[in-house]
Design a protein around this nucleic acid. Structure first.
Length: 337
DNA sequence: AATCTATCCAACCGCTTTTAA
DNA sequence: GTTAAAAGCGGTTGGATAGAT
């Protein structure tokens, strides 16, 4: 028999919160803080369980909540972080100031998942959905152990060091001084698989590169990989173009298109320059399309790049188009520059 | 106008982890 | 070291609402 919740046991009120209940809870916390949540309902005069009060406060009443629709940058960041962390909603939400894990989770399930599927991307794996063409590409990937999954975006510092999955949160990303992806620099301690534990290949992301975890473990051991310089990736550029378009849409001051995105000279300037001076809001839709197409394409690059691996000595960022290079760690770490 | 269907999101459920006794 | 309570987390549910028929 299923265990009854605390609310059931005590026959407490459940369901939606009334404005009066919200007010009681807010007043109580404003005066005394929440302290021990189990004592909050009694002290606040609420017929709720402490757990329910806590959830209501965290997800709805907290004054620092942002609420409202998610921005393009937030969406980009969620997709990116999900590709790294999976359904670790609290960790993802921690990178999004003013957003709750519940909010992020709902947004993912109701919107992002659908959009990814529409574009032929499996939201669970961030790889192309199984289709004839995609299956071929996927088969190519499985022929080697060097590539398992590719980062959708390539501009986040991820530094594998030890054996946990702790995200060290950088200072909150700024919404004003740059794109969110630009603001978030993550150092991740990855959960290294132990040989024979059944985990055959997990991705390790380092600023546009994608590594086979086992391979990296073999090669790195306890070595520390120095953070590579922040280099714009082609995949980041299109999403940022969208952001730029939106920024332009929101601002009448015509802030220079790339002004708040210092590292985004690549695609940004190309478009802004070619189009005159700035990207008008009317291009936002097209840019969004571009972004998604690029995202889709990037999923195939895993298969493609492993066939055209870096030549010995070739710099990861030495490509003529600044396309993030995806290389084999077995012989590729020395190529990092 | 009435009904059906899809979508969104707040809240709940139950499990795991952390903390305190 | 053990146990119970509290807190945290991710998955799921159900009600409200919008849009389609």
């Amino acid at each position: 028999m299923a265990k009854q919740s605390c609310c059931h046991k005590k026959k407490l009120r459940r369901g939606l919160w009334s404005p009066e209940e919200d007010e009681k809870l807010m007043n109580h916390i404003a005066k005394y803080g929440h302290g021990c949540w189990s004592s909050v309902p009694k002290l606040a005069g609420l017929d709720r369980c402490g757990k329910s009060c806590r959830l209501r406060w965290i997800n709805y009443l907290r004054p620092d909540l942002k609420r409202g629709t998610f921005s393009q940058e937030e969406e980009d960041l969620i997709i990116h972080l999900h590709s790294l962390l999976g359904n670790k909603w609290s960790q993802i939400a921690a990178q999004l100031p003013g957003r709750t894990d519940n909010e992020v989770k709902n947004f993912w399930n109701s919107y992002i998942k659908k959009r990814l599927r529409e574009r032929g991307i499996d939201p669970a794996t961030h790889q192309p959905l199984a289709e004839p063409a995609a299956a071929t590409a996927a088969a190519a990937v499985t022929t080697t152990t060097t590539v398992s999954r590719r980062s959708v975006f390539g501009d986040v510092d991820l530094i594998p060091t030890t054996a946990t999955t702790t995200i060290h949160q950088a200072p909150p990303p700024s919404f004003e001084g740059g794109s969110m992806l630009d603001g978030v620099k993550l150092a991740v301690e990855l959960d290294w698989p132990v040989a024979g534990d059944g985990v055959t290949s997990r991705p390790c992301y380092l600023q546009g590169g994608c590594f086979d975890m086992d391979a990296l473990q073999q090669h790195c051991g306890s070595m520390s990989i120095p953070p590579a310089p922040v280099v714009p990736s082609a995949s980041a550029s299109s999403s940022t173009l969208t952001s730029m378009a939106e920024a332009e849409h929101c601002s009448t001051n015509n802030v220079a298109a790339g002004g708040n995105l210092p590292w985004l000279d690549l695609g940004a300037n190309a478009v802004a320059g070619a189009g005159g001076h700035v990207v008008g809001s009317c291009y936002a839709g097209a840019l969004d399309e571009l972004r998604w197409l690029e995202y889709f394409d990037s999923a195939f690059q895993a298969a493609e790049s492993q066939q055209g691996a870096l030549q010995p000595g070739q710099c990861v960022y030495g490509g003529k188009d600044d396309v993030p290079v995806h290389f084999d760690v077995h012989g590729g770490l020395s190529n990092w520059c």
